[in-house]
Nucleic acid binder design. Structure first.
Ligand SMILES: [Zn+2]
Ligand SMILES: [Zn+2]
Ligand SMILES: [Zn+2]
Ligand SMILES: [Zn+2]
Lengths: 158, 158
DNA sequence: AGTGCGTATGATATAACGTATCAACCCCAT
DNA sequence: ATGGGGTTGATACGTTATATCATACGCACT
């Protein structure tokens, strides 16, 4: 999957499946999948890239779903807290989760040329952060792992 | 070193040595270690924690070294570009490098309780990001690796 | 029905972070 | 000396994020 992730793909199913999964999970966990929250997830899924909060807010505003920053930030907080979306620290932006099914610790690959972002998974206990934390006696609660560079499509051009 | 990094330590030498190393490196590389740049590095070294650009700017302003955001951002850009300081994406903040001697790919451990930040080192080719990138055919130019959690001093209290 | 509680929204303002731009200045090398 | 590169000063602006207070709604308990 990861090695296909930068490739084009049929995208309608992304949105439909993503929203359906999220809705089901919300039901299971007694979370309120409100209109705004769902719409923000749909926007993230349909753009299929990292989006800034104000970019999302613009769409919401155009649809009459809210016009003030907290509207977007509240929805995004809900989505990220519950694993439906992730925050990309490097970009101050948000992206829909592409592994909604399972609990996971994402790694992001960010192409600086085409701006596409791919989400991979990796055990945080393994790898550099886990090792450094164990050495320091540090308890990791959240790991940010983001690589910036060139995707397979953009690397040859450079 | 890493396992001592959260511990108290004599701190005057941190500042003196850090500035001296940076000055020497600048000489070697024909970089201009101007007053503002040096002072910002000193501030970062003396606070020994991640600081926001505006927090640094406040100090500069108090000392008559500049009062507008670009002053701080320029100095920080110089320091980060040349490896004397690092940007912590998770905090939108900056910290003096604690491994000035060698080229390195830092990993940061950020305590959410006491706000201390420790810099460890690790080969980026190893570990999760490198693996994910190779699988995806992605060329990594910069890797952000930041763990948020509790340091050894704060973990027991929690 | 009435009360209290928790969650979600609405709305305004402000904080925090970061950049664009342009003119002035300084150093120093051709 | 002069011209170009890097540095600085200064103003303005753009972007991202949060604080705060008020309101609405569903739900449980009495
Ligand atoms: Zn898709
Ligand atoms: Zn690309
Ligand atoms: Zn120190
Ligand atoms: Zn701590």
């Amino acid at each position: 999957m990861t090695n296909q992730a930068f490739e084009a793909h049929d995208h309608r199913s992304c949105i439909a499946e993503g929203v359906a999964s999220a809705a089901q999970i919300c039901t299971e966990r007694n979370l309120q999948f409100t209109k705004t929250r769902q719409r923000v997830l749909e926007i993230l899924l349909s753009e299929h890239r990292a989006m800034g909060a104000y970019e999302i807010l613009e769409q919401l505003r155009a649809e009459g779903l809210g016009s003030q920053p907290p509207v977007a930030y509240r929805a995004l907080e809900f989505l990220t807290k519950n694993g439906f979306a992730h925050r990309i620290e490097r970009l101050n932006a948000f992206i829909a989760c592409s592994h909604l099914d399972n609990a996971h610790a994402p790694v992001f690959l960010i192409c600086r040329s085409c701006d596409r972002v791919v989400e991979a998974e990796a055990d945080p206990a393994q790898g550099e952060i886990g090792r450094a934390a164990r050495q320091a006696g540090f308890v990791v609660e959240r790991a940010v792992r983001e690589a910036e560079g060139l995707c397979p499509a953009c690397a040859p051009a450079a």
